[in-house]
Design a binder for these strands. Sequence first.
DNA 1: GGAACATACCTTGTACCTCTAGGTATAATA
DNA 2: TATTATACCTAGAGGTACAAGGTATGTTCC
Lengths: 114, 114
Amino acid sequence: MSQIPVSKELMAASSRPMVLSILAGGESYGYEILQQVSLLSGGQLNWSDGMLYPVLHRLEKDGLVTAQWRTAESGRRRKYYRLSAKGKRQLAKDRTSWFAVHDTLTQTWGPNHV
Amino acid sequence: MSQIPVSKELMAASSRPMVLSILAGGESYGYEILQQVSLLSGGQLNWSDGMLYPVLHRLEKDGLVTAQWRTAESGRRRKYYRLSAKGKRQLAKDRTSWFAVHDTLTQTWGPNHV
DNA sequence: GGAACATACCTTGTACCTCTAGGTATAATA
DNA sequence: TATTATACCTAGAGGTACAAGGTATGTTCC
């Protein structure tokens, strides 16, 4: 529940897989992604918008997501992002790397160490 | 077994907790830490020495580890690193952050998503 | 009508970090 | 003697987050 501070390095490492993962669940837009991160983490993670938008732009530039401006029923203009085939492949790679590191870290955190 | 490519962002995020974790198991030195990472990861992770040494210097500068030059029985001079009290506290924080992010990521990777 | 808040997007500048590609030196092995 | 393994270090290029700022509109309440 309480907020967990995340170093900028961990932020940098997790932002791409996090966004790609959320978009793997269906299209979304910046503001909603921010809320999703907060929700999925149980309030532990709270991203700033100033950090997210450059990430989305980079993902778009790299072709991992496609973007489309649309006006919602609420009347607001939103930029909807959708995962591309390339983005799906990148997500799979990111997951593999993440687990390789996670498994190694948790091994040192296991019963034999600490 | 096969080598897993790790992005520089993930490298940056995991290097400090990885080194601190290894040192939590007892003092060590650069070259041995490199081998430990390879061993613990089952050959999946292979750090370069040019990447590790700046990390160790930063940890020392920040007071998370203490360093001591000694000559081993082999006759070689080695710089031995040891976890400080401050380093232990940092490791605990890094673990908390890591798990907050990991749990959130794996939630999006769970049965409901993808 | 007006104030306040939530929604929704964006950019600039500083500071920091990795990685590549080099370098030095010694002990052990072939 | 040559090669490999051990053991450490640094400079420069390129890339990233974060704070702090900005714009604009829909909703709610008085």
